Each structure stands twice: as C-alpha cells, then as structure tokens.
Computed example of a mutant assay.
Amino acid sequence: MSYSVGQVSTFAGVTVRTLHHYDKAGLLSPSDRSHAGYRLYNEADLVRLQQILFYRELGFPLDEIAAIFKDPHANPLERLQARQRQLNEEITHLQRLAQVAERAIEVQKTGVPLTPEERFEVFGEVAFDLSYATEAELKWAHSDGQREAMARADAHTKEDWRRLMGEAAAWRLELLAAFDDGEPSDGERAMDLAEEHRLHIARWFTSCPPDMHRRIADDFAADPRAFALVVPPSHQRPGLAAYTRHAVHANADRHTGPRTDSEEQR
C-alpha cells in the first residue's frame, strides 16, 4: 500500500516541508511515484521515517542519522548508548542550573526584602554578577564549603548584611592604602590584610583554611567578576587583583608553608 505526502504528514505528525527536506538530504526518498508524478511512500519508507523521528527525538543531528543508515557496519546500539550518556550528563547539568537559578534568586533577595535604596545602602557599588554566580556554583557544586556559605548567606538579616559589608568596605580601604603606599604584597601589612579577609569569610560564610583562600584569590586574579565582589571596578587599580592574590598566597605560606610544585599544578 502506498501513501501520499499529505497522508504521511498527517499521521506521522510532521510537515510536508520536513518530508521534502528529508528527501533532499537523502534520508528518506519515497519509493514510488503516482502516474501524475506525486511522491508515494510504502511500508518500508514509513518504517524508516519512524527510525528517523526516533533518532531526532533523542537529539541526533541529521548528518549522524544519515551516517547510521549509510554505514552497513554502523552499530546503532553503541550510538544510542553514547547518546544516553550524553543525555544523562545534560540532565545533571540542567538540574544543577535549576538549583543555581533558585539560589541566585535568593542571592538577589539577599535573604530579606530590600528596597532599591536599602540595597544600595547595604551593598553600595558591589554587584552580584549572576553569570559568575552560576559558574561558581557549578564549579563548587560538590563543595561542603559552598553549600554552607550559601545556607549562611540565605540566613543573614539586613542588619547582618550591613555589618558584613561595613567590615568589607573598611578592609577594602586598608587594602587600597597598602597598595597605593607601595607595600610589598608579601610584606607583613599585606599578609595581615589577607588574613583579615580569610577570617571575614570564616566569620560570615564558611570556614576558610589557607588552601581554600588560595583558590579564592586565584579567582580574583583570573576573573574580574570575582574581584568585583570585593573591590568594585571604580576602586580598582591596575595590578591590584594580582597584588591581592600574591598577598593571600604569602599569608597562606606563612600559616602552612609554601606549596610544592606538584601541589601548585593540582
């Protein structure tokens, strides 16, 4: 029995244009033609169309589907297993993004309702970049410290945030003064400021051992969005992020000793 393009389009749930596209792409060419020259699909064509739609539903691109059909030695099972692994990874990624979105909403709320005026009063020029927050959440998704920090941040009251940001602003002024005075980044003044920052994190968010502080400071030097959380762009100087990183590493070395080359590369 043969079926016209319109009939196949209706019961397969695809457009006539899609069927024509499959034909041009060499994926599904109708086996017959009517006396008037119209395309006609037989039962074998419909089976092939079902296979195409199945692969498409799983997200296979058309060129990969064509390769499966053209290669007599192709192993569809291996391709399906590979696609299954990929889909599972995507599901895990999307679940994490959903969690990040939920937490980002809470970060924007800062745990308490704030008017725009109150938000500026508390946070000043410090802004939370949601793209960075998302990447950081994914990067540290399995970290107990990250989970603790987010939980404690959610629990802060407006007064907590005011005190927290006041401490951060005072520390920032001291950091800028040390930098502008030409204090060495591995000198006592700079290292003491790095220690104050580490204790600030521990006091308000999560325990911050020296190695964790090193990783945080590495982000400061590598990503301007991270450093903007502690020093707004309007207060920054060229080289300040690297200076802060070096001071943090020097302070960590003061507490735990310098790391070996293998530790640096991990």
Rank of each mutant, 00 (worst) to 15 (best):
A25G: 07
L175Y: 05
Q51G: 11
L173I: 12
E125R: 11
H197A: 14
R215N: 12
P76D: 07
L193G: 00
E263V: 08
N88A: 12
E148P: 04
Y132T: 08
P224R: 05
T256G: 11
E196W: 14
H249D: 09
D261N: 13
A241E: 00
G13A: 05
P238C: 00
T256F: 04
G187T: 03
A153W: 04
A101S: 15
V126C: 10
L46G: 02
A82R: 13
S207F: 12
D186K: 09
H21M: 12
P210V: 01
Y132K: 14
Y22P: 11
R79N: 07
H93V: 07
T110W: 13
L19H: 02
P238Y: 01
F60I: 00
A141P: 01
E264L: 15
A151T: 10
V5E: 12
A226V: 05
L49R: 10
A194K: 03
T256W: 03
A190K: 06
R214Y: 03
R215W: 08
I68L: 15
E89N: 07
A151G: 03
M1D: 04
D160M: 02
H73K: 11
G145I: 11
M165W: 10
D63N: 09
Q50P: 09
V112P: 01
D71H: 06
R85E: 11
L173F: 09
S29R: 15
G124F: 06
R198W: 03
A194P: 02
H93T: 14
E159W: 05
F60T: 00
R96I: 05
F123L: 15
V248T: 11
R103H: 14
G166V: 07
P116D: 00
H20Q: 13
M150G: 06
L193F: 00
G6D: 05
D23T: 02
W171M: 06
G6P: 04
T10F: 09
A228R: 01
R33A: 04
A226Q: 06
L114T: 03
L97D: 09
A44T: 15
E174T: 03
P30G: 00
V8T: 03
A217I: 01
M150Q: 11
Q81K: 13
R147H: 08
V248D: 05
E195Y: 00
E196K: 15
I216K: 10
R189L: 10
E90Q: 13
R162H: 11
P232A: 02
T260H: 06
E183P: 09
V231I: 06
P72N: 11
R266H: 12
V14K: 04
P233T: 02
A169R: 15
G182P: 07
D186V: 08
M191V: 01
G111D: 03
E196T: 15
V230M: 06
A247V: 00
A12G: 04
Y3S: 03
L97E: 08
V5R: 15
K139C: 13
